[in-house]
Design a protein around this nucleic acid. Structure first.
Lengths: 238, 238
DNA sequence: CAGTGGTCTAGACCACAGC
DNA sequence: CTGTGGTCTAGACCACTGA
């Protein structure tokens, strides 16, 4: 039953075997898996090797483990897919299209009450407010509105952002410890319709992103795309 | 330096320590980490414990490992966030709102050429086409259009789906091995504007999802939400 | 060739939750 | 109380790959 010598490692073969039984339905939700020691005996390996597999499956949410009771196949509650957020320039150029960028406005201004609602702390005094447009193949792809807390990234004050997009610059400047994305739809505002050269109120996709560095909110950005020029992909499994 | 006795396990403390150094920028992208044996000596533990930590960091994409050379902090290329796709009913009820559901149409029809473009194989003969509306607090939340390959899920033919939403039923019926989501914006079509009671052409968020079971496409679904009634959240870090 | 990460073992002790 | 998973160890061998 386990005589084929693949290039796969032992724990990968065990993982594939068990994952296959779960995904195929042979071991349905609620099924009580054999104990680690029994599995180790079945596969002819040590308990540590089985434990490594079970830990991975548990972290992936496929199984649930309870001491003394044992291990059970999870009841599927929600799918979790992986969403890749790539740099706009790279995304455009990977499609073989020409990338271009234009700064619309740049202002260092006092923090307003509205900024608090976005997550900036009250001790933040000034924010750098930027708006710009990203182009793909000569066509406006995305309107960007960004706020940067200059007390967290003081060097941003010295940047003009005329030729360097702030997103790319920030990526190189500081490392990020956490991020939150909100994706939704919105009718094009006056500002957006003008800068993207689309009709007022036409459907747009927006990606709102907040990024933290060591607990401090670094930047808040809203990217607005015409509905026919961008969509977001998230996958799981294969 | 490592004298505090937390409730955390040893490898969790090591992981937090190293992850903190990377995320804080103390160990910047390209930084050459100490070798496993040196780290084991520094932390006063065995190499296996260090290896467990490094394997996790490597899988998370924070570090890159090369034999003979050693381990390096990754250059950030893209953010990957986790997107939770929850059942609509659960999502509504977790907000304390009443959930309701209505079937609009149900038809078992031959597979068309257009279905091939969605990923259904040519040997599929019939698909079950469903459309329905999900309500949240008495208000239309989402218009759903779904296709099910009845050669993969034959028991779907016997379901009326008058009282049971097909998404929830499928979740209980078969296990899923892979899925792909596409999220975008679209102006409300005639059908959507009528069923969601919103203006024609008004901005909507759509989530298109394809789900496979053991390599076979099971179902294709498009969920369309009015822009002001739904958005999608994806996070990473904390 | 030699050093690194990748893997695996055969034990061990512990906390916790059912019995 | 007992069995389970959770963790950790001190070794070992191997494949790969850079020097």
């Amino acid at each position: 039953m386990s005589d084929r010598r693949d290039t796969l490692t032992l724990h990968q073969r065990i993982l594939n075997d068990i994952e296959g039984r779960i995904r195929s339905g042979e071991w349905p939700p609620g099924y009580h898996l054999p104990f680690e020691m029994d599995l180790a005996a079945q596969y002819g390996c040590s308990r540590m090797t089985v434990n490594k597999v079970m830990t991975q499956l548990s972290q992936a949410g496929l199984i649930e483990r309870r001491k003394k009771s044992g291990t059970f196949v999870s009841y599927p509650r929600s799918q979790s897919a992986v969403l890749e957020i790539r740099d706009i320039r790279e995304e455009v150029e990977s499609l073989g299209l020409a990338y271009d960028y234009r700064l619309i406005s740049r202002a260092l201004r006092p923090r307003t009450a509205a900024d608090l609602g976005l997550g900036f702390p009250s001790h933040t005094e000034k924010v750098l407010a930027l708006s710009c447009v990203h182009y793909s193949g000569g066509m406006a792809l995305c309107y960007e509105e960004r706020l940067i807390d200059v007390s967290v990234v003081p060097s941003a004050v010295d940047m003009s952002f005329v030729s360097v997009p702030p997103g790319r610059w920030l990526l190189d400047e500081i490392s990020w410890s956490a991020g939150e994305h909100r994706i939704g739809a919105v009718g094009a505002s006056d500002l957006v319709s003008h800068n993207l050269d689309i009709g007022f109120g036409s459907a747009c996709l927006f990606v709102e992103r907040r990024t933290w560095h060591l607990g401090s909110l670094v930047t808040h950005v809203v990217l607005t795309y015409p509905s026919d020029r961008h969509s977001v992909i998230a996958s799981f499994g294969h």
